[in-house]
Design a protein around this nucleic acid. Structure first.
Lengths: 362, 362
DNA sequence: GCGCTCTACTAGAGCGCTCTAGTCTGAGCA
DNA sequence: TGCTCAGACTAGAGCGCTCTAGTAGAGCGC
C-alpha cells in the first residue's frame, strides 16, 4: 500500500535494443499487465478488459493497448488468469501416444476446441505411465473437462474423477458412471464391412480380434451375430489379437501354419489388418485374389497407394466435435443425464477386397 | 481483517457420504489449503510446508495434514502454486503427433522429467497447427523450459522464444540462436549403415532422401561423402522423399519403372524404408535377396517379425535424458554458451540386409 | 436546471498458493 | 534465574490476473 508500484521499464531506456539481443533475459521478469497499463497510461483493469475481449473499452484504447503489449512482448499468464477467474478454459485430453488414430483425433480436437475458445492440454498414457497418472496431471492443471481417448481404466477410478470434473470417453462406455460417451456405431460399422464381403460372395469370413482395445468387444459381438444370422455359425472363427501390427502378422502365420486360410478376414483395426496384409503377402498369398481383407479406423496408412486397405472409416472430425461439445454442454449443465453420441461409420472400399475365386472354398 | 474466513465444510456434516455420491460436485468448490488447515487446526503456511516437503513441520503434524488432505480430497492447485512461486516445475514438449519416433521420445521424456521433479506438458504440431501456435500454448502455461522435437521453424522465431525461456532442440541445429541441441551423430550413423552395406559387398547403393525432415540433410551429406570416398561417386543417387511411408512406396515404383534397381537402398528413416519395403516386395522384388534395405530410427514397427528392418537405432532414452538435463542445466545457469549433445547411434542388423547376389550389378 | 442513461474507465478485493520474517515454546546451560 | 537457541509454527505480503462496484463525464429529454 505504501507508494506507487514501480514498473519494470528500467528507467526510460527503450526495452527493445540491447536487452532483447542477449539470450535468456529472464533477469528482466516477464512483462505483466501492469507494465502494459503503465506504458499506455491506463489502469490494469482496462488492459484486462482488452485482453478478455470484454466490452468497456473504446476502439482507440483497445488498439493502443494491443500495440503497447506487442511492443513489450506481453502475453497473458495462464496461471494468474486461471486463478483469478477460476476458469482455465482448458480441455484436457488423454491419449495413447503410440496410437495413430488418437493422433488424428487430437488434431481434430484442437480445431474444435479452438472454435469454442478452449485451449487443449495433452497428457499421454504410455507403457510407463498409467491412466491414473495422466489424468492426475490434467486435473492438477485445472482442466475444466477431460476427454479420454479410448481409456482403459476402472469404473471406480472414473467415478472418482467425474466427481471433480466432467469426463467424456471417446470409445469405451462406462455404465453406471456419470460420463458422457462418444463413439462410432461399432455394430453398424461391422455389419457394413461384413455386408460388403457377403455381397462379394464371401461366406468363409474370419475375424481378427482386438482384445481389450476400444470397440473390439462390440465388433466381435456384431461379427458373431452377423455370421449366425446368415446361417454361417459353423464358419465363425475369431483369431486372438490386440490392435497391433504384430498381432496381425501372427494371425497370418497362424492361418498359414494351419493351412486353413479363409476367403476373407475382417480385422478389428487397421494396424492389425496391415500387419496381416504384410505377412500374408510375403508368404505369397495374394490380396485380394486369394483373400479379401477389411480393416477398421481408416488411419492414414490405410490410404497409401501400396496398401489401399478397404476399411471402415470412423468419423474423426465428428467424434472430436461431439466430444468437445459434450464437454462444453456438461460444463454448462452438470446435471444432465449422461449422454451417448453415436456416430455413423462409413465403409471405404479400396483394393483389398474382391469376390472370392471359387464359391464355397474350404 | 473482518472476521474469520468460513471454510467449506458445510456445517458439521461429514463431507464423505452424501456429497461424494452425486456426480459433478462442482457446486462445492474444490478444497483448498485453507480447508485442510482448518480441519487439522494449523495454519495455511504449515500445510504448505508439508505439501512442499519443506523442513519445519513435525512428523506427527505432517501425518495429520496428509491424512486430512486425503480425507477431503485436497490436491494442490498448479496455477496458484505457479503464480506464487513463479516456478511452474513444468517442462513443455512440442511434438509432431503423427510421428512414432516422437512418441518414443515423449515416453522417455516423461520418465526423465519425473526424476528431476518436473511435470511435462505436451503440445502438438500438426497439419493445422503450426510450431508457433504449439509453442505459444506452452509459453502461456509458463513452462520453465521447452523441448522441441524435430522443430521445423525459423531462426527468427526461435530467437524470440529463447529470449523468454530456455529451449532445447532435439534434432535440428540452429546456429546463431541460443538454443541447446541434442542429436544423434547423424554422420556416424550414416557411415555405420553404409559400412555395413559396403562390408556385405554392396557398391550400388541408392539413398532415399528425407527432404526437410530432421537429420536428413546430414544423412544425405554423409551418404555423398561416403560414396565419394569409396570411389563410388558415379553410383551416387538420391531419390526424393520426405520421411513418410508413401514417399518410400513412390521411390520403389520409380525404381521399378526405370528398371534400374540398385543392390541396396539406404533410407533416411524407417517410415519411408517400410513404405519402400512394402511396395517393392509386392512387385515381386525380394528383400534382402534382390535388394538390401537399411532404415533409420528403429521405430517399434521396424522390430516386427514380418518386417525385421535393419536400421540405425537412435538412443531414445539417451536423447530424452540429455534434453531434460540440458533444460535443467540451463535453468540453473542461463548464461552458459549453447551446448550440443551428440549421442551415439547403434546399427541394428536384422533381416533386410544381405550380400548382393552378383557383384557389380547394374 | 434536473435526473437519467450510457460509455469509458478505475479501485480494490480476491483467486490459492509460496515464502520471508517473524513469534512462541521448551530444552540446555551457566 | 536469566540467557541462548533450535524447532515448530504463524502472519501477512505478494504472484498476475479477474471482476464487482463504483466514478466521471457526455448526451438527452423535459
Amino acid at each position: 500500500m505504501g507508494g506507487d508500484r514501480v514498473t519494470n521499464t528500467d528507467g526510460d531506456t527503450a526495452p527493445g535494443d540491447d536487452a532483447s539481443k542477449r539470450p535468456n533475459r529472464r533477469g528482466n521478469r516477464r512483462p505483466t499487465m501492469e507494465d502494459v497499463a503503465a506504458r499506455v497510461g491506463v489502469s490494469r483493469a482496462l488492459v484486462s478488459v482488452v485482453f478478455r475481449d470484454a466490452p468497456g473499452a473504446s476502439p482507440q484504447t483497445r488498439a493502443r493497448v494491443l500495440r503497447a503489449a506487442e511492443e513489450i512482448g506481453y502475453r497473458p499468464d495462464v496461471a494468474a488468469r486461471t486463478l483469478a477467474s477460476s476458469r482455465s478454459r482448458v480441455l484436457g485430453v488423454m491419449l495413447t501416444v503410440h496410437n495413430a488414430f488418437h493422433a488424428d483425433l487430437v488434431e481434430a480436437v484442437y480445431t474444435e476446441a479452438e472454435l469454442v475458445g478452449y485451449d487443449v492440454l495433452l497428457s499421454a498414457h504410455a507403457r510407463t505411465r498409467h491412466t491414473e497418472k495422466a489424468v492426475g496431471a490434467l486435473l492438477g492443471h485445472r482442466c475444466e473437462a477431460l476427454i479420454l481417448l479410448g481409456p482403459e481404466t476402472t469404473t471406480d477410478f472414473l467415478g472418482e474423477v467425474v466427481e471433480r470434473v466432467p469426463v467424456v470417453s471417446v470409445g469405451p462406455r462406462f455404465p453406471g458412471v456419470h460420463v458422457d460417451t462418444v463413439r462410432t456405431a461399432e455394430g453398424r460399422a461391422t455389419r457394413q464391412a461384413l455386408d460388403h464381403l457377403g455381397g462379394l460372395g464371401h461366406r468363409d469370413i474370419t475375424h481378427l480380434d482386438g482384445g481389450t482395445g476400444a470397440g473390439s468387444a462390440e465388433r466381435r459381438r456384431a461379427y458373431r451375430d452377423w455370421m449366425r444370422r446368415r446361417g454361417l455359425a459353423d464358419r465363425v472363427r475369431v483369431l486372438p489379437g490386440d490392435h497391433t501390427e504384430s498381432s496381425g502378422a501372427e494371425a497370418a502365420h497362424r492361418l498359414l501354419a494351419e493351412g486353413r486360410v479363409p476367403t476373407a478376414l475382417f480385422a478389428s483395426n487397421d494396424r492389425s489388418a496391415i500387419g496381416f496384409l504384410d505377412a500374408i503377402t510375403r508368404a505369397g498369398v495374394r490380396v485380394p485374389e486369394d483373400i479379401s481383407l477389411v480393416g477398421f479406423d481408416d488411419i492414414p496408412l490405410a490410404r497409401l497407394a501400396h496398401i489401399q486397405l478397404t476399411t471402415v472409416r470412423q468419423d474423426v472430425q465428428g467424434l472430436a466435435r461431439a466430444a468437445v461439445r459434450a464437454a462444453i454442454d456438461r460444463l454448462a449443465s452438470p446435471d444432465l443425464p449422461p449422454r451417448v453420441s453415436v456416430l455413423e461409420p462409413e465403409l471405404v472400399v479400396r483394393g483389398t477386397t474382391a469376390a472370392p475365386r471359387a464359391a464355397g472354398t474350404c
